[in-house]
Design a protein around this nucleic acid. Structure first.
Lengths: 338, 338
DNA sequence: CTGAAAGCGCTTACAG
DNA sequence: CTGAAAGCGCTTACAG
């Protein structure tokens, strides 16, 4: 392994000062065009590239964004990683990825802060709001993705967030199910205290209430395939009280529900039960599922996230929450009015 | 945003030198236990955390690993991201994620090198081998994940890699299909020049050759759902020459094949055609697919990757390739001998 | 437009 | 065990 090249080496070859080399690699710095050319030539000859670490130290900007996620089973999150990291790359930023189980939230925080990231995106339903508060307190911009800040009793640090209009989405689901004549609508929740799940449920209930109804049953699937399966089994255990529609907090669990309903309970979807998901992950469109769902607009959510991030990096301190519209995607898992 | 805290601030409060503060945060450095205690106390009071950027600059170790991926549609890759980043976190490393379309491979390289990553994992079938060579030449350790170095004519830089025993896996598929009495076996390839796809195909052909057979047809799906669909349509266009088994380069395309065969061609799997995939992604186990496939052992692959990475970071320069055993997972998409 | 110089926040020989 | 000092590789006023 050869010794590391520095700006000095280039300066020597190009017969300029080290400062000039630095300027030649700083967009907008004042260098004579021909000097810059000569320096770039020398750099290319040597294979020199500025050291981003040293630059970060002095500019106090790392151009790194920390992205915290918990689990990637749900295909919605790989999608987010993909779009967000590509967008951020175009902006000249990079993403440092942290996959954290709930437990290690604190060590994750310490890590992130040590790396002097310019901002953090928290796209993990399970990471505590305390984590977000700590970062805000440490002066580093945080934006919550696909969840909303808990307005806790003690630490009243609000945090910026971007979500879909989950309540409106939930309402769409309720209205669709009502419109198609369903009378016994059950709700399969994600996590009991996840804002996303809660909001969607609230929207559903709102729509039902407007028609003088309410969900006939409710279970919790913890955003997990296997736990969703068991929740469905419980919900449909008694044929006498069987729901005629199941609204699910996300597609990942909706697909688990579909599999369980058809494969284990021998029910036909949508003939015997209708199922609606939320997210519109790629698999929802696969013919085997053909899942009616509410689409979250990932690109718009990513754009909003970047905007918020840059706003805060630029010095804005008051948090802002943006909720992106979502769209009902009608496919084949809801029966038509009979 | 408050001014950044430094070791000096802590030193002042704890009444020691800045060097002592540094030592208190360096495992194994020589500090009196009570001094260390006092310093940690002061640090906690102030909310001080060492600046990893400054540390990296002087130690010339960033403890960052660059992870380069291309697309995450295939659920195998989110799995890899998850396992690899968690393992690396436990090792005290962090991952800087680069999602690159084929085209931008060069800009990715420049970016990565500027960030002084300690190593790079290239888990992207589409990134050119030239990229890997450039890194190796720049003196930064690279390990290829799920692919193997092209031994090019010009730049003869070999690169370390970890893969499954793809050829053996391909052979398992061939033997299974032969054993169950299939006579017209078609191959659906991934990318024409992807080592992974090529090796699996070679294994399949080897098994068939041992029985005096060869694949009856072949098509390319480019690891893409839609292109796999079209390839299947072409492969099964003529009922007279219809294959009785389809071996597919990965599960992602195998599921596309299943959907197309059943949904569009009205064929029953495995009654009319058998299908075998490769990877054992989570969806392969879903009841709707119940896909017979070859499992790649992600955990073992991740462990091998770490081992190789640390070996090279530690100074080892001769590249090494490790191939992890894979396992046939028999489920429901291959008909039993009739 | 260009160079000399200070400094970003650490680690690490070197003395004591 | 501890402190003073040099230095990691840059950026950026400040003069000229």
């Amino acid at each position: 392994m050869k010794a590391k090249l520095t700006a000095h080496d280039v300066a020597r070859l190009a017969q300029v000062s080290q400062s000039a080399v630095s300027r030649a690699f700083t967009p907008g710095a004042s260098v004579a065009p021909e000097t810059r050319e000569r320096i770039h030539l020398a750099a290319r000859q040597l294979g020199y590239r500025p050291n981003a670490i040293a630059r970060s130290l002095i500019t106090r900007r790392s151009r790194i964004i920390g992205l915290v996620m918990s689990y990637l089973d749900n295909q919605f999150y790989p999608l987010v990683i993909e779009r967000l990291s590509q967008a951020l790359q175009r902006d000249g930023y990079h993403v440092l990825l942290f996959i954290s189980e709930t437990a290690q939230a604190d060590s994750v925080l310490t890590d992130i802060l040590q790396y002097q990231v310019d901002g953090i995106v928290l796209a993990s339903t399970t990471v505590s709001s305390a984590l977000a508060n700590d970062c805000t307190r440490a002066g580093i911009p945080v934006v919550l993705f696909n969840r909303v800040a808990q307005i806790g009793a003690m630490g009243r640090y609000a945090t910026s967030s971007v979500t879909s209009q989950n309540r409106a989405g939930g309402r769409m689901v309720g209205e669709l199910l009502l419109r198609t004549g369903h009378r016994r609508i059950a709700w399969l929740a994600g996590e009991e205290n996840a804002s996303t799940s809660l909001e969607r449920e609230a929207g559903l209930c709102e729509a039902l209430a407007a028609a003088g109804q309410e969900p006939c049953a409710r279970a919790v699937g913890h955003y997990d395939f296997e736990q969703a399966r068991r929740a469905v089994l419980a919900l449909f255990a008694d044929p006498a009280t069987r729901p005629d529609a199941l609204a699910v907090a996300n597609d990942h669990m909706a697909i688990a529900a579909l599999e369980t309903l058809r494969g284990e309970l021998g029910l036909r979807v949508p003939h015997d039960v209708s199922v609606v998901g939320f997210d519109n992950v790629p698999q929802a469109a696969w013919p085997s599922f053909n899942l009616t769902t509410v689409q979250q607009d990932v690109d718009q959510m990513v754009d909003a996230t970047r905007a918020l991030l840059f706003e805060h990096i630029g010095g804005e301190v008051v948090p802002r929450s943006v909720a992106v519209p979502c769209t009902l995607i009608e496919r084949g898992t809801v029966r038509a009015r009979q």
